[in-house]
Simulated assay, not measured.
Amino acid sequence: MRKTDKKYDKAIREALTEVCELTMENIEGFEWLTHEVNYQRFPQSLTVRLMFKDQQTLAGFERSDDYQAVVSDVQSRLAAAGVTLKNINRHVELDTL
């Protein structure tokens, strides 16, 4: 990993930690989030995965107004960390434990 990649990785982790903490406080059934990235294809390869306790909770979240609010929060915090994504919806995935 190059020095630049390490800086981006640290900034991404810090931004997503903030999103995770707020989402845990406000969204019932949300467990954690994680990210994957291939720095050879950065930022196109960045994926943020939000994890929920079960399918029912995930489905309810996906239908709620909270979904777009959390996705927007991910996008704005990543942008503040210097990571610009053209279509955030391509980079956010929902999953269950």
Results as ranks from 00 to 15, higher is better:
residue 77 R to P: 06
residue 25 E to N: 11
residue 97 L to H: 08
residue 23 T to C: 05
residue 80 A to R: 11
residue 45 S to Y: 14
residue 15 A to D: 02
residue 7 K to W: 00
residue 57 T to S: 15
residue 6 K to L: 15
residue 75 Q to N: 14
residue 13 R to M: 06
residue 5 D to N: 14
residue 11 A to L: 09
residue 7 K to G: 01
residue 15 A to Y: 06
residue 24 M to L: 12
residue 51 M to V: 13
residue 57 T to C: 10
residue 60 G to N: 14
residue 60 G to P: 03
residue 95 D to K: 08
residue 15 A to M: 07
residue 75 Q to F: 07
residue 48 V to I: 15
residue 17 T to C: 02
residue 35 H to N: 12
residue 84 T to P: 01
residue 72 S to K: 13
residue 93 E to L: 10
residue 8 Y to R: 08
residue 78 L to P: 13
residue 81 A to N: 10
residue 67 Y to G: 00
residue 17 T to N: 11
residue 60 G to D: 12
residue 83 V to K: 03
residue 93 E to V: 10
residue 71 V to P: 06
residue 35 H to V: 03
residue 10 K to C: 04
residue 8 Y to L: 05
residue 89 N to T: 13
residue 46 L to N: 09
residue 51 M to T: 11
residue 79 A to P: 02
residue 90 R to L: 10
residue 36 E to K: 14
residue 53 K to N: 09
residue 9 D to E: 14
residue 20 C to H: 08
residue 91 H to K: 05
residue 64 S to T: 03
residue 97 L to T: 09
residue 90 R to V: 00
residue 73 D to G: 01
residue 42 F to P: 09
residue 60 G to K: 12
residue 81 A to E: 06
residue 22 L to Q: 13
residue 59 A to H: 10
residue 3 K to D: 12
residue 60 G to W: 03
residue 88 I to D: 07
residue 62 E to I: 03
residue 13 R to N: 13
residue 1 M to W: 05
residue 58 L to I: 01
residue 8 Y to C: 02
residue 75 Q to W: 09
residue 56 Q to A: 12
residue 4 T to V: 15
residue 91 H to N: 14
residue 18 E to N: 05
residue 70 V to L: 07
residue 4 T to P: 01
residue 91 H to E: 02
residue 96 T to Q: 00
residue 36 E to A: 11
residue 14 E to K: 10
residue 73 D to H: 08
residue 20 C to P: 01
residue 7 K to E: 09
residue 6 K to C: 00
residue 27 I to N: 01
residue 89 N to L: 05
